[in-house]
Design a binder for these strands. Sequence first.
DNA 1: ATGAAAGCGCTAACAC
DNA 2: GTGTTAGCGCTTTCAT
Lengths: 346, 346
Amino acid sequence: MADAAPAAANKRLQMADIARLAGVSVSTVSRALNGSPLINDETRSRIAELARSLNYSINLGAQNLRLQKNQTVAVVVPYDAQSRQHISDPFFLSIVGAIADALTDRGYDMLLSRVDAERLDTAAALYDSGKAIGIVVIGQWRHHDQLNALAARKVPLVVWGGQLPQQLYCSVGGDNVGGGLQATRHLLQQGRKRIVFLGDAALPEVQLRRAGYLQALREAAVAPDPKLELPVPFEIIAARAALDRLCAGRTRFDGVVACSDLLALQAVQAVRAAGRQVPGDVAVVGYDDMPVATYSDPPLTTVHQPVAVAGAELVDALLALLRGERAAPRMLPVHLVVRESAPAGA
Amino acid sequence: MADAAPAAANKRLQMADIARLAGVSVSTVSRALNGSPLINDETRSRIAELARSLNYSINLGAQNLRLQKNQTVAVVVPYDAQSRQHISDPFFLSIVGAIADALTDRGYDMLLSRVDAERLDTAAALYDSGKAIGIVVIGQWRHHDQLNALAARKVPLVVWGGQLPQQLYCSVGGDNVGGGLQATRHLLQQGRKRIVFLGDAALPEVQLRRAGYLQALREAAVAPDPKLELPVPFEIIAARAALDRLCAGRTRFDGVVACSDLLALQAVQAVRAAGRQVPGDVAVVGYDDMPVATYSDPPLTTVHQPVAVAGAELVDALLALLRGERAAPRMLPVHLVVRESAPAGA
DNA sequence: ATGAAAGCGCTAACAC
DNA sequence: GTGTTAGCGCTTTCAT
């Protein structure tokens, strides 16, 4: 009565079931399914066929426990707990897609996780608990220190972002100084001198782009004006409000260097709402070169970031780390794509 | 010498280590860390403190094996193996983000997986192997049959897509017939009669939108013309080529109903490249209402899909299924957002 | 209130 | 070539 209970066979199939049905021991099934050369071909194919026909698949939780292995990488997309802002900037979504592709190609699974941007260190739980063998964090946000602490603890970690002094973790990022420099130089070459910098310099990537912006001004002997620096967050609504205030005020400007394409487009809308023309009165340069930049009105001059390459580099750096190699921070080249929001001809 | 080896303490911390350091047994540590009332408070906090200070986290692989549980949901984004096209349409990325948020809110992890769109059935391995307790598939593509087969096998499965006859699985989707209807009616109301339908009707969602398109034509007593149906794939390059051919040919048209915002924008570019105006000569309606629709030139009239709601509904349907409830297919309301690519005033 | 021991589904010596 | 057995890190009876 205990053994032969025919009702409610709801339980998941396991190796012992296959073994019983095949009339062999579990070890034989294990060996057959794992392609051990010890098993004779007839037995192996009989077992393989049985497993396939029953949709049996080795339980990976048990296998991983036994083998002490794991093929899962966690990808962490921080979010702003204040504004409850969700994954939405196209750049983040797009780099997640690129990482998914790179991991799939290399035979790894991707666990997508969201953590509070103020507590990046909580991401370590994904590693400590064995859920993932390593972590990719998208962006440094305000917590270089927390990321350093994780690296000091030997958590396998790669971060998309800028390279900073005193950095213990491996980062992969675009050339932010170069990007800020190219964007600003381009505007200066068109004779623009009152150039707004749009982005929150508390974020390392933005800070580096700002350094490029300042360097370009210096090269052109244009004095920087703090009133032209708008430390807007990535959140679009607040950014728009700050832009509207700027347009309503007395501060003159004829160019904008924005830290994302979406910010650039908000700038376009704010400028137009104030009755001025883009690019006539104000030329605008974006950042990232997402698809929206080609379709927008006007199409955006913007700094292209190599997203697909970035995904592959992040993954390769993490895998190198896991092999015990030292992975040096990498900086990927960026380039300016000139479109109509800030054209080349004066 | 064996026990006290001080070198290379590279191994991951485990419960036995905490037990040894706390001078208690593993059972006590397990109980303490899991908040059992059997443990006295002093002991519990001492153990908790020790674990925290060492960054110890219970090994979830082992815990899941023992407890026969799992908090991971697989989200499957199919890709076209032919064109090697990757996750790129903003709608897919965006719904993945919405699902990630919904899962995080409910305490589940998300495993993001890509599978060949021709072999949706391979997604079942995620369930059979115990990696995930259930699966969310984004889109039916051409394989309603494979999805039905999975459902027949009792794989816990929810699919973003249209509701079809003979459907065994639970689907959540927008009101595609209604969307196609609203889009087409809007153009007809402006006096347009030669309306192109842009989308591959081999996909169920597109097929349903086409039904709405045809219904609107019928209502307005406009005879459908097969030459106006362009079965373009989601892939942008091929779509553009088909549009250019249409514009170069003798087939007249004054409106376009597209099955994504990106397709709509390709139509805009093709029409303009042929020397005609949008919306003057040709009015264009998109689908999805992604952020790009508000920034594009011209801003797109488009069918809004409730992405955040969709993420939550997909997850809730799957969790209902896992509780053993029957989850009925759900259809979410959509509405037309009128912008300049197909304005209201004639 | 705490410990000893069995077992979750699997793999890999070690026997035969 | 195949079976027996121990054990991956954890939870939970069952003892005490």
